[in-house]
Design a protein around this nucleic acid. Structure first.
Lengths: 125, 125, 125, 125
DNA sequence: GTGGTCTAGACCACA
DNA sequence: GTGGTCTAGACCACA
């Protein structure tokens, strides 16, 4: 079952963080068609977020055609965002793992790694 | 002179986007101690953001000890975040460039690359 | 509940006055961890200050790690600045009370007392 | 000759800080009728403040009838704010010196001493 | 001209 | 209802 991590100081609203994490899990293949999202109550217990906020995130995902709420049953994933490239054994992914290993070895902070990634990305996309 | 790119649909508030872009430029070594940030007026002309929003971003940076506002003169960078690892000719950075080249060649979308990066990063930091 | 007294002729900006008074109350032990600050709305009613100015003061305090704003709930003290030396029954404090009694008896004005205090303080800190 | 100490982070405008320090010196008897204030040029050299700011402070003091600008000669004190109570050998002052000695001995910070002073003062004036 | 503060008012996120 | 952000516009301090 997916667990949400809310960063209240990130500047991104809570409901968007929840929606983004669902999509991220879908891209990673951790969530696929038919899978059930945690109920608002479960999320509230785990994250101390207001149930309305969870429901707003799920409504957002439903609006994008990714999930479907079924009365009295819960919210279910209806689409797939998984790609081969994201699979754990995909060569491209494994190479990035190695690159990140080296970054850690060389003592780079998360901020520095993000800065380099952001900059390199901006020249490619 | 640094130019800000505001994405009004990112879910991140404008002032945080401005502050983050200044920090990113500082990490890349594009902005260093003594450099002048664009005036609120200049940013307004370029981005159609309200001057107060720019000043809020600059005050945020001043709080973090990165810049200093001087009345009647402008806002100036007072610290350095530049690291060797971020330099264009750093091996680690060049390797990430190559990795990103391959991702583009294999037809991955920006979203997919971000998803892989986010996931790999979360296992290292 | 703390009540703010704004002196518009002091030359100190309103938001700094509010922040300083919160800190003063925290040092005196009148406000401690878990205590709720008045809402922006309440302060507006009591002082005729703009709500944004109150929020700016609270954000300043949040920056300093002294309070925490919780959406929809209010702003709460998260730290303690109280010291034994400031307690009403602390010997040092009681001696200053007696000193001040004598200053009043001898007919010194508030300005004169402040002048002496400022001068003596400058030779000790 | 009086030397000004400008604290750019105090929230009090520079010209008010200068005016206040002149008045403080007058109360302490360090400046009396006939004494000459430093020229704007001298203050600029010592404090890196703009000459207009110094002149504004002096104009403020002239407005209060405390000093007088004489064309081509400088600015001179024309009044006395000195009081016996502020003299270095005044008993009341000496007692405050002793009190402050003890505060320092007991390890109180400047902030804590200020907090106690502010609170005690508020009950007497 | 440039930053700093304040106001009034709007809209949003969250409880 | 409560805080967070943004806008438009005013006025001030400072250079």
């Amino acid at each position: 079952m997916i667990e949400f991590r809310i960063d209240r100081h990130s500047g991104v609203s809570t409901y968007l963080q929840i929606a983004a994490q669902v999509k991220q899990a879908m891209r990673m293949g951790l969530l696929g068609p038919g899978d059930k999202l945690p109920t608002a109550r479960e999320v509230v217990e785990a994250t101390r977020v207001n149930p309305n906020t969870v429901l707003k995130a799920y409504r957002e995902l439903e609006h994008e055609g990714l999930v479907e709420g079924r009365r009295g049953m819960g919210t279910f994933v209806t689409a797939s965002l998984a790609t081969d490239a994201a699979r754990a054994d995909a060569p491209l992914r494994q190479d990035l793992e190695q690159w990140m290993d080296r970054a850690v070895d060389e003592g780079l902070s998360a901020d520095e790694v993000d800065a380099i990634y952001t900059d390199v990305r901006s020249t490619h996309y």
